[in-house]
Every structure is written in C-alpha cells, then in structure tokens.
Amino acid sequence: YKIYPYDSLIVTNSISVKLPKDVDRTRLERHLSPEEFQEVFGMSIEEFDRLALWKRNDLKKKALLF
C-alpha cells in the first residue's frame, strides 16, 4: 500500500470526500506509515490485525478512517 499522511485519509460525513485515487477505500488504515499508525491507533499494525473485526471497525470509525 502507498503511504499517505493521516490528514489526507480521514473521512468526514461530507459527500465530497477527495481521497487519493489509488487508496483502498476499505482499508484506509493500511496507507498510514507505521509511526503514524501507532500514533492514531495506539498500537502496531500487527496488534491491530489480531483484534476482532468489530473492534477494528470501531477503532477505524473513531479515527475517521471508516
């Protein structure tokens, strides 16, 4: 996945969300650098992957990456 800054990946309720063209809309968190991922989620990507799907989705919603 290509890395993008968190600010360019957050999704708000506005209709005209302009995400970069090559971003996987269903896995926005994968486009964060490991350092920024840790900062946003408070855990590593590996720890995040071990969580239940509902928990990952809940965290993504709170981080505006859903």
Results as ranks from 00 to 15, higher is better:
residue 1 Y to V: 11
residue 3 I to C: 07
residue 4 Y to A: 02
residue 4 Y to P: 02
residue 4 Y to Q: 02
residue 5 P to C: 04
residue 5 P to G: 05
residue 6 Y to F: 03
residue 6 Y to P: 01
residue 7 D to P: 09
residue 7 D to A: 15
residue 8 S to E: 14
residue 8 S to R: 14
residue 8 S to P: 00
residue 8 S to M: 15
residue 9 L to Y: 00
residue 10 I to Q: 08
residue 10 I to L: 09
residue 11 V to D: 06
residue 11 V to T: 12
residue 11 V to P: 07
residue 13 N to I: 06
residue 13 N to T: 11
residue 14 S to D: 15
residue 15 I to G: 15
residue 15 I to P: 14
residue 15 I to K: 05
residue 15 I to H: 15
residue 16 S to R: 04
residue 18 K to Q: 15
residue 20 P to R: 03
residue 20 P to C: 04
residue 21 K to E: 15
residue 21 K to G: 14
residue 21 K to F: 11
residue 21 K to S: 15
residue 22 D to P: 03
residue 22 D to Q: 04
residue 22 D to V: 04
residue 22 D to H: 05
residue 22 D to Y: 04
residue 22 D to E: 08
residue 23 V to E: 02
residue 23 V to M: 04
residue 24 D to G: 02
residue 24 D to R: 04
residue 25 R to Y: 10
residue 25 R to A: 13
residue 26 T to V: 07
residue 26 T to H: 14
residue 26 T to M: 13
residue 26 T to Y: 14
residue 28 L to S: 02
residue 29 E to R: 00
residue 31 H to G: 01
residue 31 H to W: 03
residue 32 L to H: 00
residue 33 S to P: 03
residue 33 S to Y: 03
residue 34 P to K: 15
residue 34 P to S: 12
residue 35 E to H: 11
residue 35 E to Y: 11
residue 35 E to C: 08
residue 35 E to Q: 13
residue 36 E to V: 08
residue 36 E to L: 03
residue 36 E to M: 05
residue 36 E to D: 12
residue 36 E to S: 08
residue 37 F to W: 03
residue 37 F to G: 00
residue 38 Q to S: 12
residue 38 Q to T: 11
residue 39 E to N: 13
residue 40 V to G: 01
residue 41 F to H: 00
residue 41 F to T: 00
residue 42 G to A: 11
residue 43 M to H: 03
residue 43 M to L: 07
residue 44 S to G: 12
residue 44 S to Q: 13
residue 45 I to T: 07
residue 45 I to Q: 08
residue 45 I to E: 05
residue 46 E to Q: 11
residue 46 E to V: 14
residue 46 E to I: 13
residue 46 E to T: 12
residue 47 E to Q: 12
residue 51 L to E: 06
residue 52 A to S: 14
residue 53 L to H: 10
residue 54 W to N: 14
residue 55 K to D: 11
residue 55 K to S: 08
residue 55 K to W: 08
residue 56 R to H: 03
residue 56 R to E: 02
residue 56 R to K: 10
residue 57 N to F: 07
residue 58 D to V: 11
residue 58 D to I: 12
residue 60 K to P: 00
residue 61 K to T: 08
residue 61 K to H: 07
residue 62 K to L: 10
residue 63 A to L: 06
residue 64 L to Q: 13
residue 64 L to K: 14
residue 65 L to N: 01
residue 65 L to V: 03
residue 66 F to L: 12
